[in-house]
Simulated assay, not measured.
Amino acid sequence: MCSNSSANLTRRSIVRAAIVIIAQQGLDALTAGRLIEQASVSKGGLYHHFRTMAAVETEVLELLTQTVLQEVKSSEQPASTEAFFDLVEGQLFKCFSVDNLSIKALFGFLSASAHNKERQLIIRRFMDEIALIRLEQLKRVSPHLSHMELNAVVQAIASLQVGLVARYFLAEDLVSLRNYWACCRKTVVVMLEKCERRSRASLQQRAVGQLTNAE
Rank of each mutant, 00 (worst) to 15 (best):
V154S: 00
Y180T: 12
Y180D: 05
H147L: 06
K139N: 07
I130V: 14
P143R: 03
L160R: 09
L174S: 12
L150W: 13
Y168R: 06
D173W: 11
S159G: 15
L150Y: 12
V154K: 00
Q155F: 02
D128A: 15
S176V: 05
G163L: 00
N179K: 15
H144E: 06
V154Y: 01
E172S: 08
E129C: 10
R140S: 09
Q137V: 01
V165I: 15
V175A: 08
L135I: 02
E136Q: 11
R167L: 15
K139H: 11
L177K: 04
D128S: 15
A131N: 12
Y168A: 00
L160W: 03
L177N: 02
L145T: 01
Q161G: 06
L150F: 11
G163V: 01
L160G: 06
L138S: 03
S176N: 08
V175Q: 08
P143T: 00
V153C: 11
A131H: 11
E136L: 10
A171F: 10
L160P: 06
N179M: 14
A166M: 11
H147F: 08
E129P: 12
V175E: 09
V162P: 02
L170R: 15
V154Q: 00
S142D: 05
L135K: 11
I133L: 10
M127T: 15
H147W: 06
A156I: 04
R134G: 10
F126W: 10
L150N: 14
A171S: 10
V165A: 01
M148K: 12
R178G: 02
V162M: 13
L177A: 02
N151M: 08
A171G: 03
K139E: 05
A158C: 03
Y180P: 04
A152N: 10
S142G: 09
E172T: 13
M148V: 12
L174P: 06
V153D: 04
G163W: 00
A156K: 04
E172R: 14
